[in-house]
Design a protein around this nucleic acid. Sequence first.
DNA 1: GATCTGCCTTGAAACGATTCAAACAACGGA
DNA 2: TCCGTTGTTTGAATCGTTTCAAGGCAGATC
Lengths: 360, 360
Amino acid sequence: MSGKVEMVTMRDVAQASGFSPATVSIVLNNAPLARYIAPATKKRIEDAARKLGYRPNAMARFLRSRRSQTVGVMIFDITDPFCTPVLRGIENALYQSSYVPIFADAHNQRSRFERYLEMLLEHHVEALIVVANWLFVDIQLLADLSKRNITAATIGWEVPGDSVSSVMVDNEAGGRLALEHLYHLGHRKIAVIRGPKMLIDSGPRWKGVQKFAHSVSLELDPSLVAQLPDELEANSGFEGGYRFTEELLERKKKFTAVLAFDDLTALGAIRALTKAGIKVPEQCSVVGFDDVPLSALAAPSLTTVRQPLEAMGNLAASTVVEGIKAGLEKRDWSISRHKMPPELVIRDSTKAVPAAATMG
Amino acid sequence: MSGKVEMVTMRDVAQASGFSPATVSIVLNNAPLARYIAPATKKRIEDAARKLGYRPNAMARFLRSRRSQTVGVMIFDITDPFCTPVLRGIENALYQSSYVPIFADAHNQRSRFERYLEMLLEHHVEALIVVANWLFVDIQLLADLSKRNITAATIGWEVPGDSVSSVMVDNEAGGRLALEHLYHLGHRKIAVIRGPKMLIDSGPRWKGVQKFAHSVSLELDPSLVAQLPDELEANSGFEGGYRFTEELLERKKKFTAVLAFDDLTALGAIRALTKAGIKVPEQCSVVGFDDVPLSALAAPSLTTVRQPLEAMGNLAASTVVEGIKAGLEKRDWSISRHKMPPELVIRDSTKAVPAAATMG
DNA sequence: GATCTGCCTTGAAACGATTCAAACAACGGA
DNA sequence: TCCGTTGTTTGAATCGTTTCAAGGCAGATC
């Protein structure tokens, strides 16, 4: 209860057990040489370590072995509800492999991203996972990492070249799923809110929508289609969805459904509809994209195209851990590019189109 | 573009600049001795470092100086929307001081908490911030940390004794604020959903509610008061709020407002009311607590008692950084216990009680 | 010319682990 | 007795910094 606890070092364990530090190291790490160590020796060393409460010093270990047991996790904006499940997935996978995540939040700022990258490199992370949803393109990143052979993976984003693994949702399939759902419910006049140009997701999703429309000869009225502006604010989608929907209503456009770029946009659209006295889903259906956690809690709960966010985080982390292992064992290893299948989650914000459209 | 980049060490900088590693270290760290170094020398060393792209090796530095530039951030469950803003606040403050957060998510499991604590100690974090909202009480934690003199702070929680700083909201004042608001809107028949016993917040909030009720001679009908069960699931509050409200309605209880333990509970209550055809806020007001990010997006947007979550994270982080500094300079330093003032945020889920109550 | 004073700069010892080549002990066979 | 073998254990170097007592070198003082 009084003075500081002196750190217990390997030397202490060696002394206590009567063997040399070398032997202790070999036993405690179960290094290859451990197979030559007498069982009795192992036991005595392990007992001593336990008794003294020995904890290896991660830093000292690193210095010799080049292993920091640390992975950098760079998030573009933790405030975005998209990130939380992804982070959970990453954390969980790393935990299984006894890696510790160093958390970096870029706040959507490039300068912050770079400074954090610098810090992560100083801490010699063994791998880097970047959760981003737009084009942070950074050649420096690519060069720095692959040269220092730090395995890296991105989530929701892809880096050109073949040095970084990636995990994404199949956006095109997702776009298709969303429109297909509305179409099968009988909707024909559908407003579409496309994502900002700067987001990599926007293009493919829209393509999926168009392709499906084409396949069933559905004409998408261009005056019902809008594109969200490029914005860095985390919740700007909500605003955007709200404004565009409001505008459509003011212009007295007719539509029975809104296909929104993502869940926040959908929520914004719903807010505008509700405010104008239009009931969702009775008078107008709304479908989102992502299935962020709050979508299930919203009122009405949101029909959406689900990205398996936690699984994506998990996969990315497992991938880099695999990459680290391969590097250690000097095995060959090539990056992977995963496209996860999206899944339609039907909740309360969509409904079959009423026999007679009630909106004007 | 070919082989790996060899690490640039301080020795390389020394060689390139024509000085010794000692001098380089002194200059690059701007150590006390730096005031004796000739300006020209400094410049040459700094130039060389820049040119070679020298990056200090955090591990090696630690080994000598005992400073890992690392702070452990233990979160009880990142899935809880409460945590995100807090995490943001912590991250931001640490970033300002060039500390890097090591992220640990206990998933509400004690075993995981302990394992992570172990890992954080191995990585020699210079401080620990624990975001928890219930009694994880752990004597081990206390002993281990203060003995190894690692400064620690908790958020939303307090540790007995005087070794750990804490930042909390003033729950009692918050409870008061919530009821006061409803009362001033004219509500008299108010259902109250108290928090789970295991949460430290529950008691004081309820106490605040009671005190205010007493001060205005308002009688709280015990049959309109429920307590959420002890549950570890992150979103269990929603379920709880839903179920209790549903039950009240089934029992045909009369009330014009619900005072919920937290935002999720409030959202659950709203869901139940809406499902029963009762309009919020026209027929029934609902007030939450916390002001988690999704409260503003919910429909109707939620009136709630705001905890300054980001500020709380920020404060906790600044506090431990201060503690680290004090320790380094062998200054005296005593822990602090902050109680942040809550703030009523009026949105769309509350309204003056109608002249004639319409509910049965 | 010896000694003293500042100024700058540096040698060398840590820090706590890992890693091999090498040492050691014991034993059987020649 | 000597050698080789087998089965265990270890000495000593090393990783990249930091730190501080000590060193070198002008110029000033006696």
